[in-house]
Design a protein around this nucleic acid. Structure first.
Length: 693
DNA sequence: CGTATTTGACCTGCGC
DNA sequence: GCGCAGGTCAAATACG
């Protein structure tokens, strides 16, 4: 006699299980006896941990008919014993199905036994009801999704109309873009630049999340105006937005450790594990993972700052200070206090080589809405960390020619990695970096000091390669000032009271734009590529720059660089938020001919502004927020003044560079992005003047 | 008095 | 196993 066992781990041994098993056998003409056992812990066996089985009933199936046979379950026995007894009671069968024990905690109480015997018929009806309910829910879900997408479209349309109203004159000043955009709705692009924390990793899901963030939402008490997502996305046809993939290749706009932390920590409510947690977790085999948590990616920001800390807009509480080896300056430990459960911490330490340089290492990802003023650094570090991860996963780039290596510089944020194991990655600089980092934690350094006077050097990358004796800082400065396009962060306090411009960066941005488009829609990408190529030619010819070929090569390198978006995201967001060191901003963002902002999808959305009228939140009650903010501003100005001039003077010879001028005006000003006609349309007196000359 | 910072002690990981 | 260094805690202290 063949014995067929059916694992019915599905649980309760009710009519559903029986029916399913029965139907399975009905399909099979062979008769069967279905024996159902309920598992429970028999007292005699409890000490040994063995289970006893109480057979509940048997179901005989033959010729499509089945009948239940109750079994005396008063005497526990093994399944084999009951099977043998059943064989004696039942008609000989050709096949048996044994539904094996269910979970002990699912043992049906004796009061339900009778009900279960009769439940076979009830279960059929219930199953039918469940199926109907399931269908209803599916229909409801589809309806909700449809409505949701409709609302998304309506919202985009409203945004578009609003921007068109705000920028009619500006749109008229952009005939080139008008012609470009008028070619069809497909070419009309929307770069949704949303700031903050939340950014999904999946494409469509991410987009939906962002749209949710755009929609009115209950305001955060602490930051009532801020409900921002940290992402850079590019949309095309609003009607098809549901199918648009998120552009950013960031694994998440949050720090990469979010990938691990969020899944392993934040999802489960786990935050930065305190030592107490370690204490309590030392016993127990299931805590091994906690004792060996995944290495957290860190982002170290180098910036010139005289204040004890950089004003990155967030609220921090100092919880420790330690003098680290090799650096006489103590290292201060801060944790984010915006939210009690926020796992983000940072370390602040002066650079041993240059006391004016502040090394701020961020670790973790905020799990709360960020102040607008804090999104700059958060997004920057997130992008850098994402770059670190993406670079980690981008292998095979070990033998970059110089122009490709320069592409890293194109990304402008001077990402580099101190880990020797990553020495072949494109963002790696051939210098040992005196960054403070634990060797166990991958750390990417974001150098914001490259605008120093040494920037006046015009040495090329190759020259940099030969400058082995240069210190790290100067090397970075020259590196950033190579003849290749660069994305420079510069800020000038001299233009603090005016909306400053971000200009002359068409090729860089178009490359970025191209990259974005490539990620979204190949067809549109082709069209845009053609347009951008034309625009680039126009700009190059206007500027008569002899480095056109190299720039074009660099641009090409950018478009093939999957990590460029990360840098671009960081750059844009840092600019938008007025800079962590500046405290406030009135920034006009101009990216060549193209708008960056909440543009609509229509072809007439030529020049639009995305405004955040909220005042920048001032850090309060924090170490640097309350006490050090003035110093930070002073610090920022000193640093930024140093950096702005050389950058501005050098960049105007580099039509491919993406010039960033940032106001450090502490007075909150609306942040506007607007499209301007041509790379020379920058409104910055400094920038404009240089290029006009 | 509440909150933030300081600072010594403690814990943990890592290298030898 | 031991020592070192990094990191964190928490009581003490400072500050508004």
């Amino acid at each position: 006699m063949a014995m067929e066992k059916v694992s019915a781990r599905a649980g309760i041994c009710d009519g559903l299980v029986l029916e399913e098993a029965c139907h399975n056998k009905v399909a099979n003409p062979a008769p069967a006896i279905i024996i159902v056992y309920h598992q429970c812990i028999f007292p005699l066996h409890r000490s040994s941990g063995r289970h006893a089985y109480f057979p509940r009933f048997a179901l005989q199936v033959e010729d499509g008919r089945h009948k239940l046979k109750e079994i005396d379950s008063s005497k526990p026995s093994s399944p084999q014993q009951h099977r043998s007894s059943l064989k004696a009671d039942l008609e000989p069968t050709k096949c048996e199905i044994e539904i094996l024990p269910i979970e002990s905690n699912q043992v049906v109480s004796p009061s339900k036994e009778t009900e279960q015997v009769d439940g076979l018929q009830l279960a059929r009806a219930e199953m039918g009801e469940v199926r109907e309910e399931n269908e209803r829910l599916k229909m409801l879900l589809e309806r909700i999704m449809t409505d949701y997408k409709t609302l998304q479209m309506q919202f985009l349309h409203m945004v578009k109309q609003d921007h068109q109203k705000q920028q009619p004159a500006a749109a008229a000043n952009s005939p080139a873009i008008a012609a470009t955009s008028a070619q069809g709705p497909e070419e009309s692009s929307l770069v949704s630049l949303s700031l903050g924390l939340d950014s999904g990793s999946s494409s469509s899901g991410k987009y939906e999340k962002e749209k949710e963030n755009h929609l009115p939402a209950p305001r955060n008490e602490d930051y009532p105006h801020e409900r921002l997502a940290l992402s850079l996305d590019c949309k095309f046809d609003a009607a098809n937005m549901s199918g648009i993939s998120g552009v950013s290749n960031l694994p998440s706009s949050t720090s990469p450790e979010l990938s691990s932390e969020n899944h392993k920590g934040e999802e489960s409510g786990e935050i930065w594990p305190p030592s107490k947690a370690h204490k309590t977790s030392r016993s127990g085999d299931d805590q091994v993972s906690q004792r060996n948590p995944p290495k957290k990616t860190r982002v170290c920001v180098r910036a010139r700052c005289d204040a004890p800390t950089m004003n990155d807009g967030c609220q921090w509480r100092k919880y420790g200070q330690k003098t680290a080896k090799g650096n006489p300056c103590p290292r201060a430990y801060y944790r984010c206090t915006v939210a009690a459960s926020c796992p983000v911490r940072k370390q602040v330490q002066r650079c041993a080589d240059d006391m004016s340089i502040l090394l701020t290492t961020y670790e973790g990802t905020h799990n709360h809405p960020l102040p607008v003023s804090a999104t700059a650094m958060a997004s920057t570090t997130s992008a850098a960390a994402s770059m670190l991860l993406s670079g980690s996963s981008t292998s095979g780039s070990g033998h970059h020619p110089p122009e490709v290596a320069a592409t890293a510089n194109l990304q402008g944020l001077n990402f580099y990695h101190p880990d020797p194991s990553r020495s072949k990655q494109f963002y790696q600089l051939p210098y040992s970096l005196p960054v403070m980092s634990s060797p166990s934690n991958p750390t990417i350094t974001l150098d914001l000091t490259s605008g120093a006077p040494v920037m006046s050097s015009t040495s090329s990358y190759a020259h940099n390669q030969l400058s082995s004796g240069a210190n790290y800082y100067n090397s970075m400065a020259r590196y950033n000032n190579s003849s290749t396009p660069s994305l420079n962060f510069t800020t000038s306090e001299t233009i603090a009271s005016q909306p400053t411009a971000w200009g002359n960066g068409l090729p860089s941005f178009t490359a970025a734009h191209h990259e974005l488009f490539n990620k979204s829609n190949p067809q549109e990408s082709q069209l845009l590529h053609h347009q951008l190529s034309h625009s680039q030619k126009t700009n190059f010819s206007n500027t008569n720059n002899p480095q056109e070929s190299s720039i074009a090569a660099a641009t090409k390198a950018i478009t093939t660089d999957p990590n460029f978006q990360s840098a671009l995201v960081a750059a844009l967001k840092s600019i938008i938020n007025g800079g962590g060191g500046g405290g406030g901003s009135g920034t006009v963002l101009t990216l060549g001919n193209y708008l960056v902002g909440g543009a609509g999808a229509g072809g007439d959305a030529l020049e639009q502004k995305l405004r955040w009228n909220e005042g920048l939140t001032t850090s309060t009650g924090s170490l640097f927020g309350q006490k050090m903010a003035p110093q930070v501003n002073a610090c920022g100005s000193s640093y930024l003044n140093k950096s702005s001039t050389p950058n501005s003077t050098s960049s105007h010879h580099q039509p491919a560079s993406l010039m960033l001028l940032q106001s450090s005006n502490p007075i909150p000003l609306p942040i506007s992005f607007h499209k301007q006609n041509g790379a020379n349309a920058a409104t910055s007196p400094v920038d404009n003047g240089d290029r006009n000359s």
